[in-house]
Each structure stands twice: as structure tokens, then as C-alpha cells.
Computed example of a mutant assay.
Amino acid sequence: MFQYITDGLLLFLFMSMGVDMIYANLISRALVGFSGFIANRYITFSGTRVRFWDSFFRFLIAWVVTSILSTIGVLIAVHLFLQGPPTPTSGLIIKALVEVAVFLLAFVIQKFFIFGNPTGDRERL
């Protein structure tokens, strides 16, 4: 949850500095995503037996997929609910709504794809 709050606050900050919402979304997702990977690797899923680089590669794939879904969701929401360009506040609200859906998908991906052990290997690095 901390990651999603930080993601939203970074989006708000970047948009307040004049960054377009789509770019602000991608930048904030990247910053929070990569730091979140490390936190999840060593705290949330600390018992994983998956090698670091295997889980990092899976993370990159999952990050690209969820970032595409997030960006498409944001674009659709802006088109449906706003009549003009998003403000930092409206951008934050839209991002929060979109990320609720992406959150559930991302957690399942992390638990079973990134930090899960689909091959049954017991090595950890």
C-alpha cells in the first residue's frame, strides 16, 4: 500500500512541476516499482527461493505489462471523466482509481510469477 501512496504522491508532484500526466505516471511507476521490487524481494517475499536475476527479469516483464495497463487506464479515465487536461488533483484521483484495479493484478503477478517458483528449483542467490 505504501508503494501506491508514494506512486500517487510522486505523480502529483511531477504534474505540479508541469510534467504531462502520462510521463508523470510512467516516471512515478518506475521509481516506485524498482524500489518496491527490492523491498518485496527482501521483506514481503523474503522466503523466496528464486534467484535474484530470475525474479528481476520476471519483475521487468510484469512492470512493463502493468505500466501499459495503468497508462491505458489513465488515458481512458481522462477521456471519459475530464473535459480538459488533467490537473494534479484530478490526475491523482484518476490514478488512484486506475491503480486499485492494477494493484490486485500486480500482487498476484508478484506472488506467483516474480517471487514464486514455477520450475521447482530450490536455489537462492
Results as ranks from 00 to 15, higher is better:
Phe52Glu: 09
Phe2Ser: 13
Gln110Gly: 13
Ala106Ser: 12
Gly84Arg: 12
Gln110Val: 04
Ala62Arg: 05
Ser55Ile: 02
Trp63Leu: 12
Ser70Leu: 07
Ala62Lys: 06
Lys111Gly: 07
Thr48Gln: 11
Ile94Leu: 15
Lys95Asn: 13
Ala96Asp: 10
Met1Lys: 10
Tyr23Met: 12
Val64Asn: 04
Tyr4Val: 14
Ser70His: 01
Leu69Cys: 12
Asn40Cys: 12
Val19Phe: 09
Pro118Thr: 06
Ala101Ile: 10
Gly73Asn: 05
Ile72Glu: 05
Val74Tyr: 14
Phe52Ile: 11
Ala24Leu: 03
Leu104Glu: 02
Phe107Tyr: 15
Leu97Asn: 12
Ser67Glu: 08
Ile72Pro: 07
Ile61His: 01
Glu123Trp: 03
Gly8Ala: 05
Val32Ile: 14
Phe113Pro: 02
Ser67Asn: 14
Ile94Gln: 13
Ile93Ser: 05
Arg122Met: 14
Ala24Met: 00
Leu60Thr: 05
Val64Glu: 02
Arg49Thr: 04
Phe37Met: 05
Arg49Met: 01
Arg124Asn: 14
Thr71Tyr: 08
Thr48Arg: 15
Val100Pro: 03
Tyr42Pro: 02
Gly33Val: 02
Val74Cys: 13
Leu92Lys: 00
Gln83Lys: 15
Ile5Pro: 00
Lys95Met: 12
Arg51Asp: 10
Asn40Leu: 06
Leu31Ser: 03
Phe112Glu: 01
Thr89Glu: 14
Phe107Pro: 09
Phe37Gln: 02
Leu104Arg: 01
Thr44Gln: 06
Val98Cys: 10
Met15Lys: 11
Met17Ile: 02
Phe103Ser: 12
Gly47Asp: 14
Thr119Arg: 13
Ala30Arg: 03
Met1Cys: 09
Ile38Met: 12
Asn25Gly: 11
Leu97Phe: 14
Arg49Val: 01
Gln110Trp: 05
Thr71Trp: 10
Val78His: 10
Ser67Val: 05
Phe59Tyr: 15
Phe59Asp: 11
Ile93Gly: 04
Pro118Cys: 08
Ser16His: 09
Val65Asn: 00
Asp20His: 15
Val98Lys: 09
Val78Cys: 09
Thr71Asp: 09
Val108Met: 13
Gly33Thr: 03
Phe59Glu: 08
Met1Ile: 11
Val98Met: 09
Ala77Ile: 07
Gln110Asp: 14
Val98Trp: 08
Val64Thr: 12
Thr89Ile: 15
Ile43Gln: 09
Ser55Glu: 02
Leu26Tyr: 06
Tyr23Arg: 10
Phe52Cys: 11
Gln3Lys: 11
Gly8His: 04
Ala106Glu: 01
Val74Arg: 09
His79Cys: 03
Phe14Asn: 00
Leu31Lys: 01
